[in-house]
Design a binder for these strands. Structure first.
Lengths: 331, 331
DNA sequence: TCATAAAATGAGAACGTTTTCACTGAAAGG
DNA sequence: CCTTTCAGTGAAAACGTTCTCATTTTATGA
């Protein structure tokens, strides 16, 4: 149906090799020839077929972005949107297109990880596990892990300074004189959870405040659950004067609970979130939070993966993007 | 490097034709044979190559999701996240993978629309234009347009009842006795803009209220601009008692402006949004808004496209998903 | 002008599948 | 027992490119 390279070749009188070169490496072809080829191509409405191209070149110029979180839906996650955006732009700049899927697409019924080789590499975002990475590796698939730190040989992981961010948030609260500080933690990947939790604990230790487990709660990371949890925590007789939430969605839920309880923010209760998601400056009062450089994360992950694809040797490294406290109105 | 179908064939002693059938149409192959083939495949870590497969079959089982909005970044758009999610799931259920890109990937330097044929069809979301659709059509690419209504022959558009939704929102306000009702409209595609604007006008006409152009403003659809705009509108001497915002992001900005001006919501000012985005129930007070069935939109678009890909004749139709008023705390 | 180098082009194999067609052997029906 | 049917299998063409190698044409320098 559609015109092929052969149609173009016979129309302009050159061989298909020359037509191919006119498109793929124009500098190897005489100026005059190139023009004739283009002219014929336009006349026939011809576009090189990417599939045939991929077949012989052995690469597709596609990158897979796999979000891997326990809970569906996953693209909704406001944390990943800006990262995804950044990955998309970086890939576009380097000439790659983006494939998106959840980890389910990769899982075979037998529990193995399969890859229908339509992509040159994979960015594994979220709660990726080492097994999956190794399965992919065994199929010679370049992999970069995003927002997680996995202990696999020669694996590049792009994450952020979870521990430092938590410490930053907590010290900010302790510096304002808070002693009874609650923690409402979302159930993310172990890497994220433990790092942020450690930051919480160490900051309390710094001021000699013992851990009070009534003030430490884990919830599914959505606003409703967080609100319920915060409501309970705030109704304790000696309730905390500040709450550190391990992401902004949870912080928003906490904020709602506080407002409904009639508390004045930040006078009666201080709240700090994490991630600096869009939502953090949409609520009123605006949320103090830990900014994560999502653009850098996405860009780095894409660049690292592309470097790997294009032949550079990959070395084991965990790249941590820096973190920054954004003080707004809830502290 | 990786094992091919030939390696499997020679290991298990069958021809490559049989191996191919064992994977692609297992029922055409004897049980015993199939097991031997699978065994050999596992031993060699073999996976059928999707590219070669696509080449000979003439289809990739991939669908392109193209978000086409004037302003980057685009994936951030909270309106599209649930739609995208729904498309993703529908595609997965039907055996398709998803490619994502912005319209820029499709545009050639010469202004034409190109499609490197790696997808069997395209969902064009956002401010798509008829020219692009026709370019794609000329390359035999099935297209479905999402969240827009374009006047192209035999084109399927999946959109929502913009006009009805606006009417619903406005009647809700007029029924509560509001007469001076402002409009803060985001600059979306003409289809969306005009429909919602018409709903606004007609509802005012219903109660015999003349249009007051001081109460009608257009902004870029982000919270900051909306907040500025609302602040100005609310400082008019005879300010409106209610504001209809053409999406939730704008409504949130308006809400912030009102709260900062010390207005009590909904007593001093009523606000209605549009879309029922996630944000609408995260802010406090929660937003009254017009719910758009985004899951249905995504699902319908995907199903329509897949039907077209799989050979069903496409007929010109504009599918409108229904709309529903969600009354929360801002009215 | 001739030898040499460089640039431009063409022929054809290769990429890894699917699928058509033909063939075989076994089951079914008389 | 002979034909007919049918499930199972194999040989080989086809899909539309790229790329190596060989060949032809053009440019360069003496």
């Amino acid at each position: 149906m559609a015109a092929t390279i052969l149609d173009v070749a016979s129309l302009c009188g050159y061989s298909k090799a020359t037509v191919s070169r006119a498109f793929a490496s124009p500098d190897q072809v005489a100026e005059k020839t190139r023009q004739r080829v283009y002219e014929a191509a336009r006349a026939l409405n011809y576009t090189p077929d990417a599939i045939a191209r991929a077949m012989v070149r052995g690469r597709t110029d596609n990158i897979g972005f796999v979000i891997y979180e326990k809970q569906y839906p996953v693209v909704l996650n406001p944390f990943y949107s800006p990262i995804f955006e950044s990955v998309l732009q970086t890939c576009a700049r380097k000439g790659y297109s983006l494939f998106i899927s959840s980890d389910r697409d990769l899982r075979l019924p037998n529990g193995q990880t399969c890859v229908k080789k339509q992509m040159d590499g994979i960015i594994l975002a979220g709660q990726s596990d080492a097994q999956m990475v190794m399965d992919l590796r065994r199929q010679n698939m370049p992999v970069v892990v995003l927002n997680n730190a996995l202990d696999v040989d020669d694996l590049t992981c792009v994450t952020t300074d979870q521990y430092g961010g938590a410490l930053l948030a907590m010290r900010h609260l302790t510096e304002r004189g808070h002693r009874k500080i609650g923690l409402i933690a979302g159930a993310f990947s172990p890497h994220v959870c433990t790092s942020r939790y450690n930051g919480y604990c160490d900051a309390l230790r710094e001021i000699g405040q013992p851990l009070d487990f009534r003030f430490v709660q884990t919830v599914e990371p959505n606003a409703e659950q967080a609100m319920q949890c915060a409501t309970m925590m705030l109704s304790l007789p000696d309730r905390p004067t500040a709450i550190f939430c391990t992401n902004d969605t949870i912080a928003v839920g906490t904020l709602k609970a506080a407002l409904r309880a009639g508390l004045r923010i930040p006078h009666d209760l201080a709240i700090v979130g994490f991630d600096d998601s869009e939502i953090s400056h949409l609520v009123e009062p605006e949320l103090t939070t830990v900014r994560v450089d999502k653009a850098a994360m996405g860009c780095l992950a894409a660049e690292q993966l592309i470097a790997q694809i294009e032949g550079e040797q990959s070395q084991k490294q965990v790249i941590q993007t820096p973190v920054e406290l954004v003080i707004r109105q809830t502290t």
